[in-house]
């Protein structure tokens, strides 16, 4: 499917947010704890073990359940009329609007523009020595990849397996792992950009980095 890059850019320019609708998990009485426009934070801590801002308490059968924010942003579309009232399951209570920063916008655009090659297994990943040498010499962005190329080594339990690239041909635009990192299954490994789209993508990212305000 052809992606209109200009439209994509326009979309993020006009609405640099990510909206997360908060719905009730089950029936119960809602006790709101936030105001419209209030800033809220998501879970914090190295293991995300400290819960985010308390949004509301949903009480059912004497069991008050604290619903905390999973996202950082601010509250919009708060349905105040639900406060202290019984609601059904799946009823939207509010929207948490998360403001995207430059890096998040670039990341999202790239995810839409690039072909992402995922990690087939939870393992450590390395570039093959030839690819690593070429990247060191000439930079990653000019490395042309086509279907069947062996560019990555998957290392698991002391057994190294060469991975063949499966996907459309293009230029290796983004590497999502560091040499020897342990990558979870399904996490992105490589982002491939078609050669004809490459100049435009580069220009667009340049513009976002230099012109857009955070």
């Amino acid at each position: 499917m052809e992606i209109n890059l200009k439209d994509l850019l326009k979309k993020y320019k006009s609405h640099p947010y990510e909206d997360h609708e908060i719905k009730t998990a089950h029936t119960g009485i809602v006790h709101l704890n936030v105001e419209d426009g209030q800033e809220v934070s998501g879970p914090t801590g190295r293991w995300k073990h400290r819960p985010g801002t308390l949004l509301y308490v949903l009480e059912r059968e004497g069991n008050p359940k604290r619903i905390t924010s999973m996202y950082t942003g601010f509250v919009t579309g708060l349905r105040k009329e639900l406060d202290s009232n019984f609601v059904q399951a799946g009823v939207p209570v509010m929207v948490i609007r998360h403001s995207l920063n430059k890096d998040e916008i670039i990341d999202r655009i790239l995810r839409e523009v690039l072909y992402v090659f995922p990690a087939p297994q939870r393992a450590r990943y390395f570039f093959t020595p030839e690819v690593a040498a070429a990247m060191e010499k000439e930079g990653a962005n000019i490395l042309n990849i086509k279907d069947g190329d062996e560019i990555v080594i998957m290392s698991l339990m002391k057994r190294d397996t060469l991975l063949s690239y499966l996907g459309p041909p293009g230029v290796l635009y983004k590497v999502y792992f560091r040499h020897g990192d342990l990558i979870e299954q399904g996490a992105p490994l490589l982002g491939i950009c078609s050669p004809e789209r490459l100049p435009f993508v580069e220009r667009m990212i340049q513009r976002i980095r230099t012109e857009w305000d955070d």
Binding site: H26, R60, E61, G62, N63
Partner: peptide, 17 residues
């Protein structure tokens, strides 16, 4: 007590009240 409680692992394992 006539009430329900939530399992602390409910988010991870989907435990019911």
């Amino acid at each position: 007590e006539d009430k329900t409680v939530s399992c602390p692992n409910s988010e991870k394992y989907g435990c019911r009240d």
